[in-house]
């Protein structure tokens, strides 16, 4: 029996069609955006796409485990607000800001994981409630946009390593590597098992509660990274900064071929989905369309992606 090669795997995961869409979107973007293939444009594009890519990886892990995280945006916000409120130029304060942000994000992850895994609340409602908690906490810390972010942050984020590897790309690569490590562990398979059929996973002796909690904790890693990148990008703290991320990550996950029922798709697909959304925003900008169209078009694309992802299931139903 022969091993599956890379292309077969690619096809089986349904990544081929997503990759085709990705290529198409890049092509249109290249045509509209002047100097698309220059290093500067490449770098600035990536810098603006990176936060959504990281946040979508977080969403992907939760959705694969059969849940949904409506609190991602506000969890990112909370991290950025904490950092902007505690940091000064002193290295000690920077470290403190990052540690506090990590602690807060983990706390949100534990809250989500326990309410959903152990208390068995439906994730769409309970993470939404957690989202409100995060927003309230952010407003308490920073009622008005402000705070201080050391310039070193901004400078690091826009720098390049050896003038070929932008730091923003490095962050994405590191995140994929982190996920790659999880892929080699039991938890990876258990996430798919619980998302795919919770009762069957339980019957196989898997602790489904723990798996759900771990999924939210793994997501925390990517959420913290998103917070760091967002802080570096905006240089301020703002309790409304993360609002758009929740729905955009769900969109990216769906476009990336992950089933909202859970257990199907790949994190890499979510990365592609996030990049597709980024490029579409770019296209709308460079086509001189009003930014009002952006949400409208994005919405239509999500409906299209959802319909496509449901098609095989519908066809099967018709045959049965």
């Amino acid at each position: 029996m022969k091993r599956q090669n890379f292309m077969q795997k690619f096809q089986q995961n349904g990544l081929l069609s997503i990759f085709a869409i990705f290529v198409a979107v890049v092509a249109v973007n290249a045509w509209l955006q002047p100097g698309f293939f220059t290093y500067d444009v490449f770098e600035s594009n990536l810098a603006s796409f990176t936060p959504l890519v990281l946040a979508s990886m977080a969403q992907a892990v939760v959705v694969l485990a059969g849940g949904i995280d409506m609190s991602i945006g506000m969890s990112i916000t909370l991290g950025t607000v904490i950092m902007a409120a505690t940091m000064h130029d002193a290295p000690g304060s920077i470290l403190l800001g990052i540690v506090l942000a990590i602690a807060a994000t983990l706390a949100v992850g534990v809250l989500n994981g326990v309410t959903i895994g152990y208390l068995r609340l439906p994730s769409i409602i309970s993470t939404f409630a957690v989202s409100a908690v995060c927003y309230g906490a952010s407003l308490l810390i920073m009622p008005q946009p402000g705070g201080y972010v050391p310039s070193a942050f901004y400078e690091t984020y826009t720098a390049s390593i050896g003038s070929v590897l932008p730091v923003s790309l490095l962050v994405i690569l590191v995140s994929l590597l982190v996920w790659g490590i999880f892929r080699k562990r039991k938890i990876y398979r258990y996430i798919y098992a619980v998302g795919g059929n919770e009762a069957a996973a339980y019957a196989n002796g898997i602790s489904t509660k723990k798996v759900k909690l771990y999924a939210f904790l793994i997501a925390c890693i990517f959420i913290v990274l998103t917070s760091l990148v967002v802080v570096a990008q905006t240089s301020t703290g703002d309790a409304n900064i993360g609002r758009s991320y929740t729905l955009n990550t769900i969109a990216a996950v769906v476009i990336g071929g992950i089933s909202l029922q859970g257990g199907k798709g790949s994190v890499f697909g979510a990365v592609l989905g996030a990049l597709i959304i980024g490029f579409i925003s770019n296209i709308i900008f460079f086509a001189n369309l009003s930014s009002f169209y952006q949400d409208l078009i994005k919405g239509l694309i999500i409906i299209l992606a959802l319909t496509l992802s449901l098609l095989p299931a519908l066809r099967k139903k018709a045959l049965a």
Partner: peptide, 30 residues
């Protein structure tokens, strides 16, 4: 072996057949 199947549809046969008792190598990697 229960009457109601305890398999995960989206996983491959080999993943299903070792689900819950996966052989592990170094450091708990699969």
């Amino acid at each position: 072996v229960h009457q109601h199947l305890s398999l995960i549809p989206e996983l491959s046969i080999w993943e299903n057949m070792t689900l819950g008792f996966e052989p592990e190598g170094k450091l708990g990697f699969l």
